[in-house]
Structure formats: structure tokens, C-alpha cells
Amino acid sequence: MVEFLQQMVNGLSLGAIYALIALGYTMVYGIILLINFAHGDIMMVGAYVGFFSITMLGSNVFVALLFAMLACAALGVLIEKIAYKPLRNSTRLAALITAIGASLFLEYVTIFFLTPQQRVFPAEAFPMHQYQIMGLYISNKDIFIVVLAVILMIMLQYIVKRTRAGKAMRAVSLDREAAMLMGISVDKTISFTFALGSALAAAAGVLIGLYYGTINPLMGIIPGLKAFVAAVLGGIGIIPGAMVGGFLMGILETMVSGYGSSMYRDAVAFGVLILILLIKPTGIFGRNDSEKV
């Protein structure tokens, strides 16, 4: 039983990271129906911004988080303007291929300027404390990661549901043309969505750096793909779905490693994706509506 609970703790911290990344995927897909492949790499850039602000500016974790989120919000908007906006009226495949291009571009520009070597995230930035509760080992990092993720998600939910910008986002996502006719600036709203999603990814990047201790230019690929699976699992385009999907994904992976074999972990993630796509492509929280001709 203790072992099972410990695995739940492990799964929740991993899931919190997936959930943060999945939110960005879901928001972007919800508004422009684009799988933003570069999202995982924006997370990587966030991790590097956090790293440099801790090591070079000597800032603390919260300031580093803030820097990373601001920088990535700007980066997300920039990528959208340069790579995606010109394609808004062409096929979705063209946009997807462009997104793959943007992803490769971020990865290898980082490698070019910062070398492919891993960097060690300074441990002093967040001193570790260990708590032992009824045989369970929980560190302040586990708690920090989950609590921060939940706070950010609540903030996001507030923005989307209660603010004018959020209302505009929902309107554009529902019907772009109609939203435009109602006087909503579609361009601004899309930019805002990219900014929000990228900021969350940046937060996830800094958290990964803190939690695992090392970062490298290709670190965004696998978590990015996993988070995408989480977003599809919860129902792509649906914000609470991404949160639940992220946590589910983290717990599922941990249980596969813990009670099966860690070697099959990645296959299980993609297996879930394919099953969902084939059985209920709209995901757990999605409504069923057929594609319009």
C-alpha cells in the first residue's frame, strides 16, 4: 500500500508537468486547430531562460519563473506571427509541417549557440527538504511542483472564464468569422492565446529543470509529445480536459514503470493516444460532433 501511494506521489509530480504543457497545446488547438509542435521546444527555451537568470543574474526561483514566462510569452507570439499567421488560410497540413519546422528551428538554434551539452540546474536555487509521512517520502519539490501547477491552472481558468480577453478567446474558438463581425480582434486574441500557452510551457520548463536537475536543447521533444497525448486524452481544445489528461498520463506512466516494465512506458503512452483517436477522438471530456463537409 505504501508502495502504491508512493507511486501516486511520483505520478502526480510528473503529471503536473505534463498538465502544464498540455494546457498550451489545447488552447492553441482550440483556437486555430493547429498542433503546435514547437510547444515542447518553447518549454525548453523557458528552462534555459530560467537557468540563465538563476546562474547569471542570481535571481531566485520565483523571479526566474517570471522571466521565463515573460520571455516565452513573447517568443510564442513571435513564432505565431512569423510562421503560423501567413498560413492561417492554407491547409492544416501545411501549418503542421511549418510547426515541425519551427520545432526543429528552436532546437537546433539552441544547440548552435549553447552547444548540445546538458547544463546542470543549480541545486542551491531551491534547497531540498525531505518529509517522511507514514513511510511515504515526499520532498518540498514534489509539493511545490503540484501546488504551483494547480495555482497556474486556476489562474488560467479564471482568465478564460471571467475576463474580457478570455471571453474573446472563447468566441474566436467557437466561430472566428462571427467573432470578427462582433468586433473582436482575431489577431490579438490569437496572439494572447499563444502568449498564455507559452508562458505555462515556460513554467513547466523551469519546473523540469528544478525537479530533474539537468536541461538540454532536446529536452522538450519527449515531454512535448507526451503532453500532446495528454491533451488528446482529455479532449483537445478543452482546458479542464488537459489538466485531467496530464495528471492521468503522469500516473499511468508511473504505474506502468512501477508494476510493469519501464521499457514499455513510451509505447503505452502512444498506445493510449491511438486507442483514444480510434475509439473516441474527441477525448474524455469532448462532445461528439461529426466533421463538416
Binding site: I35, R92, L93, L96, L225, F228, V229, V232, S261, M263, Y264, D266, A267, F270, G271, L273, I274, L277, L278, P281, E291
Partner: peptide, 28 residues
Amino acid sequence: VPTLRLRGDYLAIATLGFGEIIRVILQN
């Protein structure tokens, strides 16, 4: 047979997933 029912980007992701599954199976 199962995946080609999917359209566009969903198909892209499903084939990517299958490609990775082949790799993981070979690893094991």
C-alpha cells in the same frame, strides 16, 4: 487499416505514434 480512417493532423499524430511504438517494441 485502423488509422487511415482518421483525417489530416490526427492521422499524422497516429502514424507518428505507431512509428514510435515500432521502435519501442524493437527495443524490448
